[in-house]
Design a protein around this nucleic acid. Structure first.
Lengths: 206, 206, 206, 206
DNA sequence: CATGAATGAGGCTTCATTCAT
DNA sequence: GATGAATGAAGCCTCATTCAT
């Protein structure tokens, strides 16, 4: 029978995660110290450790959130009607990504999580999970493309999904690190390469 | 053993970098300790510090090599004759990437470097540099695509380059973390989306 | 044990300074390791570093105290009534110095501080400050000497102050290093050279 | 049967001592590393270690030289004719000290040596030795003072010597650290306090 | 004789975590 | 529940010294 309300606990937890997120986005998982998180959250060491057993648990929670965020990003697009072109889908996603990449935005954690997943099996597990879910969404989309006649009847839709999904990390990195790639530009490139719905197909083989 | 040859020095430096590379690929920049590198290289602390002023300098050297490696990967492809389709280019690159992703392969460092670049300006500098060079190569390729009639005459080739290059990080991550994406599968997906050179274009707009 | 009293904190700080003082008096600033201080204080590394940011900060605090100690030594003497002779003043100061030169006495740090001040500007700053204050006191004394008729009316009292103050480092060093110079002996020498208040002046020029 | 001439060895040794002296004067014994000395001397590690068994041996050699230098400073003054007043002696010595306190001057080592002597018995040994020799010189001087009638017949000449010698460290420190005490000023102060040879004694006792 | 690469103990400091209050 | 002082292992790096060449 908890003395404090469930929501109080939840609020505290979120307060810690928010602070940690700011720190991690600023300095990365490794360089951020727990003391940084104490300071940013305004809580004491003991308080933070009441809600999270370890720094790794905070990282894991945030890594999970970051992946979940990416995953949820592409939820509804699949079912839009009429079927958006790949350029349109990509543009929409890229815009959402840009929205979340302010200095404290969740997206800034994505590259940290990927790097961690390469060397840490525990992290790899739910990155894989997130990728699989996302691929599922893209597969549905690829199937609608095929139904639309945008792909051959025998097209390998999982492969198409994998290819389309591959565009996103590249956009995120170019956006976060290089900083000069806009959603519009990406969409323009994709549209040139995959001109679905364009009045004239320019790329007929000779 | 003083007065050693220039190449001895170079060999030592490489010995250290190789050892560090193994450690970093295994545990990441942050978790790898200098002791790990001493042990892996078989050298003493003092010896390593004769060649590199700090752990950061080793990381920087390796990060640089990793980006340079990625960059050099796509050197000649641009000039192949006849012009390879995007699917072919991507397949070739993906194969090279796979070749280099064994436990000690340089590619395993790429995600670490990206993560670092997001929070460390110094690293960001040469990641940017590498991206710009790579984009240059892809732009040449995009221009050849246009010349070939695969892109509209007014196609935004820098945008096309940015879009195509975006595919690679996604492949690397899916390959390293999820492990189930092969070069062939990626190529299949790309070919379905960009069927240049196919006898019949299936995806005519209605 | 959080939320401790202000005085607890102060006590801890003093505990550390006391331990450091013992170590420094025994082995000098350079040879004393932080481990020595941890052991002597009975505190852990982390505890010590909670109160002092670095070894240098401990040295600085102690160096400051040592100089402040010397300075405060000669506070009241100046205003004694009737005016003590230089020999009396010097004897009194030397006695106090002897009192503080037991193995844990602050005076043992003075030579360390002087040595440091020669090569470290930061230390030099407050040694200078201490010297200036002390000279001020001696100048007041010199002025009373003049008023007493012990100095010519046009005597350069700052110069007299500098000369008198010069006797102290020499006494400290001879006491600490050679060990055979007592306050009485110094006073005897000074009295022979400056026989103020003696019934007969023996040193008339021919 | 040495392959190289005796004087070559001596020259090398001096070359090393000179370099070490520069380093020590600049940064102090503790902060100066052997690598600093290698660099300053232009010799290799092996070369330096051929002439000195350890860093401590270099310090000892230089500490000895520094004390010997101080000692030799006051050699001939004692026998000057006619007998110089204390103010004159002190002025002359102070001038010599100033001459040697340029950035690489031997005098800058004196405070280092004193500090070392307080904590290191080996150093203390020859500082004591130097002090004793110097006191011997000052005693001769004090005896001449007495013969001159400047001191009472029963004056404790060793005590007078100790008192006079005490003035020097104070001058050295004020000169090196505070920087505003000139030989002239010191002499003025001493003359006011010990007006030997002045036409009129102002400080007659009542 | 000289070189300078190599050693490795040990120095200073940080930081995730605990627990008495 | 909350606090924050305390812990101590471990990290990075320096440096006096050696010795193969």
């Amino acid at each position: 029978m908890p003395r404090v309300s469930e929501e109080h606990l939840e609020r505290r937890k979120q307060q810690i995660l928010d602070a940690a997120q700011v720190c991690f986005a600023r300095k990365g998982f490794a360089v951020t110290s727990m003391q940084d998180i104490f300071a940013e959250s305004g809580l004491s060491a003991g308080a933070v450790y009441r809600y999270f057993k370890s720094k790794n648990e905070i990282i894991a929670a945030l890594a999970f959130e970051a992946m979940a965020g990416l995953r949820s990003l592409m939820g509804e697009l699949v079912h839009s009607d009429p079927l958006p072109t790949p350029a349109e889908v990509v543009a929409t996603l890229a815009e959402r990504i840009v929205d979340q990449s302010d200095p404290v935005g969740r997206i800034r954690l994505a590259p940290q999580v990927w790097a961690l997943a390469v060397v840490d099996e525990e992290t790899a597990v739910f990155v894989r999970e997130a990728v699989h879910t996302m691929r599922g969404r893209w597969e549905e989309y690829a199937e609608r493309m095929r139904a639309q006649g945008w792909l051959p009847a025998d097209a390998d839709t999982p492969a198409v999904a994998a290819a389309l999904i591959s565009l996103l990390p590249g956009f995120i990195l170019q956006h976060l690190i290089v900083g000069d790639l806009t959603p519009e530009m990406l969409a323009r490139g994709v549209r040139a390469l995959m001109p679905y719905g364009e009045p004239v197909r320019p790329n007929e083989a000779p």
